[in-house]
């Protein structure tokens, strides 16, 4: 339930260990303070008729004790902190040629795989057990890339690209979210990291490089035509077609995604149709306008998108 306590990488694990150590120290201190306060409340409550007690003004020895003891504890915490920092956030071996470039957009994530020469959105695939250097950038305001089970969070700041090393140890699905307030739909700027074995990852890579399969039926053919005609192509890319827009997510392999619109919706034909009918109603403020499509147009576009394997 708490991903911070369930790390799945050699980077997240030391943070978890540090957390447990510091948390336990804090609980001990809290128990000490609360215990002293509660004890005083019982032991020194004023009994009726009691006058003022003898007056005490302080004790130098005690002051020194409760200055020095916390200081020593903090030194210990600091040493563990410094160790955990270098373990949890190592510099990627070759920062100049990242395996993945993550670009934050108001309110979706673009993932470029420069070595494979393709892009996806909101779903990032990684192989298990391998270092992946990630460059984190933004296209507009400040966002923050956070997958608690895999690594620290890192801001995406205009003009200040950041590097992050990802190295998931086991296959699985890891949820992530933008954690810097970035405007109206910040809540739905979620994403997931899908970790598979190296061979499955390579299969996926080969699929992604392929251009979109041409539509086969009448309905989806009509959809493909509408996609070019209705300005969808100004904002979206579908490789192998005229569509080369960069405002919205790459749709070349749209059907391969589990969720869309920043994890707001499951990728089902009904949801895609609802989205196309009026994205502003579903994700108010998002940068895809209501395209005023008729129900028939929605149907054919949905059929087309659902053929993009």
């Amino acid at each position: 339930m708490t991903p911070v306590f369930n790390p799945s990488s050699p980077q997240a694990a030391p943070i978890f260990t540090l957390f447990v150590f510091v948390l336990l120290s804090c609980i001990v201190i809290l128990a000490l303070v609360a215990g002293l306060v509660v004890y005083a409340c019982f032991r020194y409550r004023r009994r009726s008729g009691e006058g003022d007690p003898p007056q005490r003004f302080g004790s130098q020895k005690l002051e020194i004790a409760w200055t020095v003891a916390p200081f020593l504890l903090l030194v210990a915490i600091f040493i563990f902190t410094a160790r955990a920092m270098s373990n949890s956030d190592p510099t990627p071996a070759d920062a100049s040629s990242p395996d993945i470039v993550i670009v934050g957009h108001q309110w979706w994530w673009e993932a470029q795989y420069p070595k494979g020469g393709f892009r996806t959105a909101n779903e990032i695939h990684l192989p298990a057990g391998r270092d992946m250097g990630v460059l984190i950038k933004t296209n507009d305001v400040i966002h923050d890339f956070w997958v608690p089970q895999l690594a620290r969070k890192v801001d995406a700041i205009p003009g200040y690209p950041n590097y992050l090393l990802l190295h998931p140890d086991r296959p699985g699905v890891y949820l992530g979210a933008c954690s810097e307030f970035c405007g109206e739909e910040h809540a739905w700027m979620r994403f997931r990291v899908l970790v598979t074995s190296q061979s499955e990852f390579e299969t996926w890579e080969r699929q992604q490089v392929q251009i979109a399969s041409a539509p086969s039926e009448l309905l989806s053919n009509e959809g493909a035509r509408l996609f070019q005609e209705k300005a969808c192509m100004k904002c979206h890319t579908i490789s192998g077609t005229e569509a080369k827009g960069e405002v919205g997510p790459d749709l070349t392999h749209f059907l391969s995604r589990h969720k869309f619109a920043g994890e707001l919706l499951d990728n089902t034909p009904e949801n895609v149709a609802r989205w196309l009918k009026n994205p502003q109603q579903i994700k108010p403020g998002c940068h895809m306008p209501n395209m005023q499509l008729t129900d028939d147009q929605v149907k054919s576009l949905t059929a087309y998108l659902d053929g993009l394997q």
């Binding site: 911070v4 804090c26 201190i29 902190t81 955990a84 949890s88 608690p148 620290r152």
Partner: peptide
């Protein structure tokens, strides 16, 4: 005390925001 936890930087890397 939770403030001290943030000052242990990697904890803040997880919990900030």
């Amino acid at each position: 005390l939770s403030g001290v936890m943030f000052a242990a930087v990697p904890i803040d890397w997880q919990t900030t925001d």
